[in-house]
Design a protein around this nucleic acid. Structure first.
Length: 316
RNA sequence: CGCGGGGUAGAGCAGCUCGGUUAGCUCGUCGGGCUCAUAACCCGGAGGUCAGGAGGUUCAAAUCCCCUCCCCGCAA
């Protein structure tokens, strides 16, 4: 079966790699155009492009999917199916209808829950006990297509965006491979979603990253894990931003009381900070302009001590 | 030429603005002591070409000026 793969970030790259290694290499890859990124705004290629180029797979990078040059090339490739994984743009109708088997998509949630841009982050943030990937046939809506299969995975209270991201990328590849099998032998059964139960995973905004210590310790733990290793949840200490990269909810009754954000203890085990409910033991931080470091190191250098305040603010 | 912060003992930092005796602090490490015991406490020691430049200024540079390399935050 001739396939074209569309995707952009690392998540897509992992899936693409798995497909290639399992004998499902696409005839071409479509990915976002190179764009200025990072310090100095140097032009950078997407992870998918880097991998495709390394494998010698034809790579298309249209600014717009309606670009006639691209359209012509895509038609000439005559794919039987287009596999879409986090491409980043809405597909126009002609693309959806071009392949015989349409466009199938791997979405990192158990649809119809968490449609949209940040399903993994939102699921972790909400403290869900389970997530997964759904393979569906794309239609005009955002993640509204008929579903073929869902692969689930439990979420623990130590999962981070990083661990979930990697796990779901593998599951996506697995699901897509199964889907291709089913479609090829004509046994694919697509089921429409229960749109009544749909929910949306809004993309992460700056305010989602701010740590508000008036919330409960367990909620903050979810927030921190949902944003690790990118872009991280942060607060502010002595006027500088301080990302919290690792923290655990302190079990048992608090030894001390404090107003939310107040440092209750700071030592080699980490920094204990009071929350709206319960306390958080911060074990790793990422200070502005510094490297990611253990809380113990930060305590040594920054001289943070009991009574100091961690503030949740949006500042620049 | 997007904006900005930084490179000082194994680690995290101070010192630099207004150059000047043995470059300081917290931790780690090593040795000793206290203790039933300890990750606790006390005493002591080792460990630094102050990123690099047989650069510039100066009687004197970690501190001021110039160049190079490297790290990081923000914005996209």
């Amino acid at each position: 079966m001739r396939s074209v793969f569309m995707g952009t970030p690392e998540f897509s790259q992992i899936v693409l790699r798995a497909l290639c290694e399992r004998g499902r290499a696409p005839v071409a890859v479509v990915t976002r155009a190179d764009k200025p990124a990072g310090r100095g705004n140097t032009l950078s290629a997407s992870p998918v492009k880097k991998y495709a180029v390394s494998r010698g797979i034809e790579t298309l990078q249209p600014e717009k999917l309606s670009d006639p040059v691209f359209t012509e090339r895509l038609c000439a490739l005559s794919p039987d199916i287009i596999i879409v994984v986090a491409y980043g743009k809405i597909l126009p109708d002609y693309v959806l209808k071009l392949p015989k088997y349409g466009c199938i998509n791997a979405h990192a949630s158990i649809l119809p829950e968490y449609r949209g841009a940040a399903p993994m982050q939102r699921a972790i943030m909400d403290g869900k006990r389970e997530t997964g990937v759904t393979i569906m046939k794309m239609d005009k809506g955002v993640d509204t297509g008929d579903t073929l299969l869902t692969l689930k995975t439990p979420l623990s209270d130590t999962d981070t965006l990083e661990s979930v991201h990697d796990r779901l990328a593998e599951l996506s590849a697995e699901g897509l491979l199964q889907a291709l099998e089913l479609i090829e032998c004509g046994r694919a059964v697509f089921v429409s979603q229960d749109h009544e139960k749909a929910s949306y995973a809004e993309k992460i905004r700056r305010e989602d990253e701010v740590i508000d210590f008036r919330r409960s310790a367990s909620e903050l733990s979810c927030q921190i894990r949902a944003l690790t290793p990118y872009p991280f949840a942060f607060c502010s200490f002595n006027g500088r931003s301080l990302k919290i990269t690792k923290a655990t909810v302190l079990e048992g009754p608090p030894e001390k009381e404090g107003i939310p954000g107040e440092v209750l203890a700071a030592g080699k085990n980490g920094i204990i900070v009071a929350c709206g409910s319960g306390a958080l033991l911060i074990t790793e931080v990422f200070p502005e302009n510094k490297r990611r470091m253990s809380a113990a190191d930060f305590v040594n250098g920054a001289r943070i001590k009991p009574g100091d305040k961690l503030v949740g603010v949006i500042g620049t």
